[in-house]
Simulated assay, not measured.
Amino acid sequence: MDKHDGRATARPRAVATRGRGDPWYDEPDAEWGEWRGPGVQSAAVPAPAAPSERSAAGVYLEVQRSPAFQEVRRRYRRFVFPAVALFFAWYVAYIVAATTAPGLMAQPVAGAVNVAMVAGLGQFASTFLLTWLYARHARLRRDRAALELRWDTQEMTRGIVGHARVNDTARGEGGQR
């Protein structure tokens, strides 16, 4: 029987799988404070980019100000704000009716089923309906444009220090355009 002192088995999973196809841990990254050796830890703050290089913050601000990004956000807001207002109004109406009109809510609909039970089940049904509508809206109106923005942003940040390795791995693992 082998004797172990337990030190080799106490390694974190990330260190144990490093180099075995895990894109997040292909190599140690000094920018995120990973161990470089026994008793030595690298800096936790990434070094600032050289002034001549384009910064990631600048890229993301440029994308945020772009007409394509504004269109995706506009489509999102045009669906979400009215949907939330309608759903909240329906929920408040149910609560107000339940507390202020108990006679109405106690009216039988069919057998032992009353108006309160139907309205309560309607809350669940409307939640599922709203979820389905949101997913459908996102798929038909926003997902393609958002994915294009994502790829464009990755292309723009590809040459920036600290982003090149992650973007190359993400593009290779997630499929090509």
Rank of each mutant, 00 (worst) to 15 (best):
M1K: 06
M1T: 08
H4K: 09
H4R: 09
D5V: 08
D5N: 15
D5T: 13
G6M: 13
G6A: 12
A8I: 08
T9P: 02
R11K: 11
P12W: 06
R13P: 06
A16R: 03
T17D: 08
R18Y: 04
R20Q: 08
R20D: 08
G21I: 03
D22E: 09
D26I: 09
E27D: 07
E27G: 04
E27I: 10
P28M: 07
D29F: 00
A30W: 04
W32P: 02
W35H: 01
W35N: 05
R36D: 12
P38K: 11
P38V: 10
P46N: 00
P48N: 07
A49K: 01
A49F: 01
E53A: 12
A56G: 14
A56V: 14
A57T: 11
V59C: 00
E62V: 03
E62M: 04
V63I: 15
R65A: 14
R65I: 04
P67M: 06
F69G: 01
Q70E: 13
E71Y: 08
V72F: 02
Y76E: 08
R78E: 11
F79I: 11
V80G: 00
A85I: 06
F88N: 00
A89I: 03
A89R: 02
I95R: 13
I95M: 11
A97K: 03
T100H: 07
G103T: 02
G103Q: 02
L104T: 03
A106L: 09
Q107W: 13
V109K: 01
A110I: 05
G111Y: 04
A112D: 12
A119L: 14
G120H: 09
G122Y: 06
G122V: 01
G122K: 04
L130P: 00
W132N: 10
W132Y: 11
L133E: 08
Y134R: 08
Y134Q: 11
R136D: 13
A138G: 10
R139L: 14
R139F: 10
L140E: 14
R141Y: 06
R142E: 15
R142M: 15
A145Q: 05
L149C: 04
W151I: 15
W151N: 10
T153G: 12
E155F: 14
M156Y: 03
M156V: 06
T157W: 03
R158K: 05
V161I: 08
G162Q: 00
H163Q: 07
A164R: 15
R165V: 13
G172W: 09
G175W: 00
Q176I: 11
